[in-house]
Computed example of a mutant assay.
Amino acid sequence: MSDAVLTRENILKVLDQFLDPELGRSVVNLDQVQDIKIAPGRVTIQLGLTTFCAPLWDELAQEVRDLVRKNLDSAVEVEVKISEFPRAAEKLGQIGLKAKYVVAVGSGKGGVGKSTVAAVLALGLTRAGCKVGLMDADVYGPSIPHLLGTEERPTLYEGKIVPIVVHGMRVMSMGFIVPREEAVIWRGPMLHQAVQQFLRDTDWEDLDYLIVDMPPGTGDVALSLSQLLPVSGAVVVCTPQELALLDAVKAIAMFRKVNIELLGIVENMSYFVCPNCGTRHDIFSSGGAKKKAQELKVPFLGEIPLNMAIRVRGDEGKLVDCFEDPVLQPCLSALCKNLVRQIVEKRRASPPLPSLSIL
């Protein structure tokens, strides 16, 4: 095609096909196309996107480039500049939490690295530019404070709990309130009340994602969360061996029973690569979670290797440093991107309905 087709009007018609990753509607209709510059053989598009999809900005820019070349001029050079398009989160459910998406991270049993994966997801999304909160709902065994290396105590301001800010994300845990050596001995109603207070009375501000570290098993917390607010989706963590997969299947069944959509399965401690000889060892078997995900028609989000650096940095409260590790960084970043990719695909396939205010 000739450069004559490269008009602002034609480019806008093409961009009308590009759906906003958060709302699943045309970026043209949402006024997110901020500028278009046309020069001989070159088009520059300034596009506004929310931080909700920040981990995928590079991929989304490529999607726009491909769209313009395919529909207008395959030879044209297309530059896509993405800047933040502010859009506040709406309140979720009766609890009034302002978050665009709530991700519950669970497992059918303990000891599979669920809290580590929850913290990794929260850290990875924050580092990519998302506004993230991390809630430790594992009241009986809160691990998040230790993994993040903080022992601060939350304060109160104007009747709200001020969460601890760690590495740019807002964090709340029973571990900030109860001394490390003391046990929490509560029955179901008290557990429900604690979860409710963490959600309702904490000043989470305006979040893209609230990551909830669930306790292991299929008990009260999942029921409480499903009753208190619309949890958007769940991630199930397991290790590759058959015994762990049996419990992971139960966790998947639990989330489905309370109508929480499955975003995917993560296989933790997937394999071990010897640092001396480079040989791969499948200590707990390998690929079991991916196979089970296919059987249950659940997305597979990725593998995390059995790596000493995760254990050492977790014990030191420096889990965030794993994102600087040349071995771990690619798989951890891919895990976060795969999670957001699943969410964006679902949003685009079934856009959330706009809220209507009743006067």
Rank of each mutant, 00 (worst) to 15 (best):
V117C: 11
K98S: 11
G110A: 05
V112E: 03
E77F: 13
K114D: 07
K91H: 03
I82T: 09
E79C: 12
K109V: 11
E90G: 11
L92K: 15
G96L: 04
A88R: 13
E79N: 14
K109C: 11
V120S: 13
G113C: 09
A104C: 10
E84L: 12
G110E: 06
S74F: 13
V112Q: 05
D73I: 12
A104F: 07
S107D: 08
L92R: 15
V78N: 11
V80Q: 13
D73G: 12
G113M: 09
K91F: 07
A118N: 03
G111M: 05
P86I: 07
E90N: 10
E77R: 14
V76P: 12
L92N: 08
L92Y: 08
V120C: 13
V76C: 12
L92F: 07
L97R: 00
V105Y: 06
Q94R: 15
T116V: 12
E77V: 14
D73W: 12
L92M: 15
K109P: 11
A75L: 13
K100A: 01
V76H: 11
K91P: 00
G110N: 03
L92C: 10
G108H: 06
E77T: 14
G111N: 03
L97K: 02
P86H: 00
K91C: 02
V105P: 03
A99C: 01
K114A: 09
V112G: 06
Y101P: 06
D73M: 13
S115W: 01
G108C: 03
K114R: 08
E77D: 14
K91T: 09
G111K: 02
G106L: 04
A89P: 01
G108R: 09
A119T: 15
V103T: 02
G113S: 06
A104R: 08
I95G: 05
V78D: 12
A119Y: 04
V80R: 12
Y101I: 01
V120P: 08
V120G: 04
E79Q: 14
R87N: 13
P86F: 04
K81Q: 14
A119F: 04
G108F: 08
A75I: 11
V117R: 10
G96I: 07
A75K: 14
E79V: 14
V112N: 08
F85P: 11
S107V: 08
V102D: 02
G108E: 04
G96C: 05
K109A: 10
K91D: 06
L92A: 15
F85R: 15
L92W: 04
V103C: 07
G93D: 05
G108S: 05
A104P: 09
E79I: 13
S107H: 09
V112Y: 03
G113D: 09
G96T: 00
G113K: 01
G111P: 07
G113Q: 01
V76K: 11
G106M: 05
E84C: 10
V80H: 11
G106Q: 00
E77W: 12
G93L: 08
S115R: 02
K100H: 00
V117M: 09
V103P: 04
K98F: 01
V105K: 06
K109H: 09
V103I: 10
V76Y: 11
L97C: 06
T116A: 00
V103G: 02
G110F: 04
E84G: 10
V80A: 13
I82R: 00
A75T: 14
A118C: 07
F85D: 12
L97W: 02
V80S: 12
K109D: 10
I82E: 07
E77A: 14
G111W: 03
K91W: 01
V105W: 08
E79F: 12
